[in-house]
């Protein structure tokens, strides 16, 4: 497109972009180490005293989990402190019929029923809906179940147990929480697949910048039409 007209809007502020990439990294570490905690690597040779593989894997998991959880808390803070785009992950305009029409329109665009997508400064409504369901609630779910499991190792009467111990009886018993936490990983990984695919696709096929926006913070539009 030779007649690209760039009109940049500053959408994602620096703390939000930082959170996005720290979050992406921590999810990668969490999914990988988490998988190997559930299905450990082949047995290590030598004496037990000379090995600490599961220990290191679990340490990485717990460290990444703290980064993830603290990052999420900071992200909630930024929903208050940041610009109005920063609130999109937490508030859905569910009572706005226009928003639902836009969700429908975007769905049609993804079903190849619309010829041209619309322009959005922030997330498009369908993306917002998906992120709310997968990322916001997915993160909350993983943080609560994850810390409940961590509390088991930390022992009763610690702050982990006081804050998150109630999750275990809610699901039944420890093993149920393990299973749900494991399913949560696949839930988030499914989102990651969709997210990366759609981000690249939109970057090519939509009328605005997507991938570079999460790096520079600026949304750029490829045409001047409405």
């Amino acid at each position: 497109m030779s007649m690209q007209k760039m009109e940049a809007v500053y959408v994602y502020e620096a703390p939000l972009r930082l959170w996005h990439w720290v979050n992406a990294l921590s999810i990668t570490v969490l999914a990988l180490t988490g998988y190997f905690i559930a299905s450990p690597l082949p047995t290590q040779p030598g004496e037990a005293s000379a090995n600490f593989l599961m220990g290191y894997i679990r340490f990485a998991h717990f460290t990444a989990a703290y980064v993830f959880a603290i990052g999420f808390a900071a992200r909630i803070y930024w929903a208050f402190a940041g610009n109005h785009h920063a609130r999109q992950l937490f508030l859905l305009p569910v009572f706005n019929p226009q928003w639902w029409r836009e969700v429908w329109f975007e769905s049609r665009w993804y079903l190849f029923l619309e010829r041209e997508p619309r322009k959005y400064v922030g997330h498009n409504p369908l993306a917002q809906l998906f992120m709310f369901v997968f990322v916001t609630w997915g993160s909350i779910f993983m943080i609560f179940t994850g810390f409940a499991l961590y509390a088991e190792g930390e022992g009763r009467d610690g702050w982990h147990d006081n804050l998150f111990g109630w999750v275990i009886p809610l699901f039944g018993q420890s093993q149920d929480v393990h299973s749900w936490h494991h399913l949560g990983m696949w839930w988030i990984l499914s989102f990651v697949i969709i997210h990366i695919y759609v981000a690249i696709r939109e970057d090519i096929m939509s009328r605005q910048s997507i991938v570079s926006t999460m790096i520079s913070g600026y949304r750029m539009f490829k045409d001047e039409r409405k």
Binding site: T43, Q44, G55
Partner: peptide
């Protein structure tokens, strides 16, 4: 437990 932390398992 030390064998768990070391990553040594009965397969």
């Amino acid at each position: 437990r030390p064998h768990f932390d070391a990553g040594q398992f009965v397969e």
